[in-house]
Amino acid sequence: MNSMRREVLKSIAAASVAIPAAASVPASAAGLHRTGAAASGTARVLPVIAGLPLDAAFVRGVITASERSAATVAPTQSIGKLDSAAIAALTVASDGRPTTIVGLTDSATAMLVLGHMRSKNATVVAMTHHRLAHEANAAAWAAHIGELAVAQALSPAALLAGAADDGAAGAAYVPDGISYMSFTCVI
């Protein structure tokens, strides 16, 4: 992510304000095509986790941001142990309705989810790799990533700013640190 985009996202995060729903900001203004949840009225958000220490914090962030945007939150899908059935179940969990899928997982799980999203014609709004020095004190970071991931799907301004970013979420990128990947898709 370039520094300008990072700054925009930081400002959104720092302000900690309610992020406007997509309907209030024309997608065309950001040069984006919005075909998913945000465009359909009431947004539906499906959190995806992978049995990692920061799962609960991430989901908390997703719920917070969803409530702020009056979006409904579907039951969290846990994809542990690289299970193909669980990944395929994401489509079922979306229940045939436009759904924003937001995840904070390991790289392998994210890779599989994104591959599945492509096969289902989903839109991948954002995906970002993260590196943390420690998981122990990263709950606030994970919650913030959850909030930002939802914001990306529901707000062109946040999407324009870039992917959920470590700096914006209050944790520095640490080379060779613990790896995570966040993603936002609309199916």
Binding site: L82, D106, S107, A108, T109, D176, S179, M181
Partner: peptide
Amino acid sequence: VPNLQEFGLYNWRGGG
């Protein structure tokens, strides 16, 4: 018997 276990390789260093 299909499985996806070997995708765990991508978590060794992470970062995709």
